[in-house]
């Protein structure tokens, strides 16, 4: 596919009549705020940008299974274990919806998977932080899934049809994730002093990384503007972050806990929540491999992929065998 894309790039330089007509149709659809579907003509840069965004999103869901799967055996009750398993299964599902949607852009699953396994693809920096305590399951659900929802709800209206449809499905399921996380923290906050401390400590560690999930500030986000012009993104990173802070500032009161942000205040004039400066050097370091858990996450992912090889091979062999038997049966029927 990569070769085809680059040859497509050369063709684009020539600008065939099909390209010119396609470009015109594409622009009209975007101007109309309608949806682009897989077989429509689209600019190579649009295809590339979406492929990058959607596959990173899919990888994040897949890697995102790990911090929580890590707690399944230690969840404090059978019900908590069942809930956590359902959540981890959802993350796998979200990854698969998004991989399928990405494939409609012309990059096949194996290529996408290899990009993750070889460390060439990025995924959300948040999953490179360790989940140290049971309260982290709460903070991840409330803050991390909460930030993800704030980011993802507008993506349901993304101009690329398959992406928007995948996001609708995902958003429906994410709301359970956020609530269950909040309730873990709520229960701890009503518990012993040690439990309250544990909940506060988890919030303290996940607050800033969760705010960074929205991505760099607007002026430092090179892809943002183009992405908004194409109706993929609907709001800027900073706008979404603002909105999210406004929500959790109220929610944390219900927990009787606090957000670890000395600068947090509502600015009447601008009508915006002002939060502390985020450490974008840390963000860059973590997203490009230098976080506390990057190597562990990738190693675990590779191990799981390699451990599953025999299952994939056996299933493929069984399918071939069945097909052969069917072919023989059909042949016999023909002869008879």
């Amino acid at each position: 596919m990569a070769e085809q894309k680059s040859s497509g790039g050369h063709l684009a330089a020539v600008r065939t009549p099909e390209d010119i007509a396609g470009q015109r149709r594409f622009e009209a659809i975007i101007a109309d705020d309608s949806r682009i579907e897989p077989r429509d003509w689209m600019p190579e840069a649009y295809r590339k940008s979406l492929t990058r965004q959607m596959s990173q999103h899919a990888h994040s869901e897949i890697i995102g299974m790990q911090p929580e799967a890590n707690w399944i055996t230690r969840a404090p009750s059978l019900k908590r274990k069942a809930i956590l398993m359902a959540k981890v299964q959802d993350e796998a599902g979200h990854g698969l919806y998004l991989y399928s949607a990405t494939e409609t852009l012309g990059t096949d699953r194996d290529t996408l998977n290899n990009q993750l396994l070889t460390g060439r693809a990025k995924y959300s920096s948040i999953f490179n932080y360790p989940a140290r305590t049971w309260a982290d399951m709460g903070a991840i659900g409330w803050l991390v899934d909460g930030a993800a929802i704030a980011n993802q709800v507008p993506l349901c209206r993304a101009s690329y049809g398959p992406y928007g449809r995948a996001m609708v499905r995902i958003c429906k399921e994410e709301s359970f994730h956020q609530r269950q996380g909040f309730e873990i923290l709520l229960e701890l906050s009503r518990g012993t002093e040690a439990q309250r401390k544990m909940a506060q400590d988890a919030i303290n560690r996940f607050y800033a990384p969760a705010l960074m999930m929205f991505g760099p500030s607007d002026q430092d986000s090179p892809n943002s503007q183009q992405s908004m012009a194409w109706n993929i993104k609907r709001f800027s990173n900073d706008d979404l972050r603002q909105r999210f802070v406004g929500m959790i500032v109220e929610q944390v009161k219900v927990l009787g806990l606090s957000l670890p942000d000395p600068d947090l205040r509502y600015d009447e004039e601008s009508g915006q929540w002002l939060h502390m400066d985020l450490d974008w050097d840390e963000f860059k370091r973590v997203v490009s491999g230098g976080g506390p858990c990057n190597s562990q996450r990738l190693a675990r992912r590779r191990e799981a992929h390699e451990d599953g090889a025999w299952v994939r091979e056996a299933a493929a062999a069984f399918a071939r065998k069945q097909q052969n038997e069917k072919n023989q049966h059909d042949q016999k029927a023909e002869v008879a």
Partner: peptide, 18 residues
Amino acid sequence: DSQNHQSNQPSQGAQKPP
């Protein structure tokens, strides 16, 4: 939803799906 390149490269005909 799984193919799209035909429209960009009509001369190539059907491609193998992923």
